[in-house]
Nucleic acid binder design. Structure first.
Lengths: 125, 125
DNA sequence: ATATTATTGCAATTAAGTCGCAATAATTGA
DNA sequence: TCAATTATTGCGACTTAATTGCAATAATAT
């Protein structure tokens, strides 16, 4: 399963790189002006996740949002224990820098972290 | 919109009260042996949420889970800043007691907190 | 007992995401 | 450079979670 470079893949990547917030499938689809099939975008994003290029956030609106793994790319222990903030007004999903550590009961092993706080951001408040 | 007491509402409430973990729609439906319509359960749970009887957790499997607001019932500031743990093996969603405080950038106002960690719990690990 | 209206059941619908499969197009190697 | 291999795409159908409209039912108040 060696990965190939395709125009669409590159386009999605550059959109994510240029974005100042996490993006959903619809947002990407819209920005690509429907020149690409929905399923293709889903698949590209899933591959990015599998490859650790991007991380996935399931927001409390039930949608998945994706953001580039910028800072965490170099780290060996690839953890995403930080929160995301979803603005109920402008519906932007942005990354809150602060890493959070939750100590689990003994015997528990964490595999995935998903923390979302929704509310109103400063520019909408 | 004054609330009425119905057998189904009481049944759902007692199931939630007796559960040691958060419950999803399907789980409730199954425990009620399909004697109640799906939509009814959804509506009852949404009313419970609106009334602050129950809190809703959106887990990273894309499903909603509901748990009684036990400890937090008496508090005036009704905050749910605690994590839930979803076991990937037994798929139980349980409440992690520890309250977490995330400090937002200035000008941000939090409305909702949704924190889920998934992994393997002690009895499955 | 009766009127009011919240709640229910049913069916249809929305929305997010996935999947199978044939067609297309990156890559690899001669 | 060209052909072979196979990852990727597009299309459509499908799955799953949850919501909604509406008529029928039943809990409450008078």
């Amino acid at each position: 399963m060696k990965r190939r470079n395709t125009p669409t893949k590159a386009a999605v990547l550059s959109l994510l790189a240029g974005a100042d917030s996490a993006m959903s499938h619809d947002m990407l689809l819209e920005m690509l002006e429907d020149s690409v099939d929905r399923a293709t975008i889903y698949r590209i994003l899933n591959r990015f996740c599998a490859d650790g290029v991007v991380h996935r956030v399931l927001a409390d609106d039930g949608k998945q949002y994706f953001a580039l793994c910028e800072d965490c790319a170099q780290q060996t222990e690839h953890s995403h224990n930080h929160f995301h903030f979803r603005c109920l007004t402008c519906s932007r999903v942005e990354c809150l820098g602060t890493e959070v550590s939750v100590n689990l009961p003994s015997g528990y092993r964490a595999e995935n972290f998903n923390g979302v706080i929704s509310g109103v951001c400063s520019r909408c408040g």
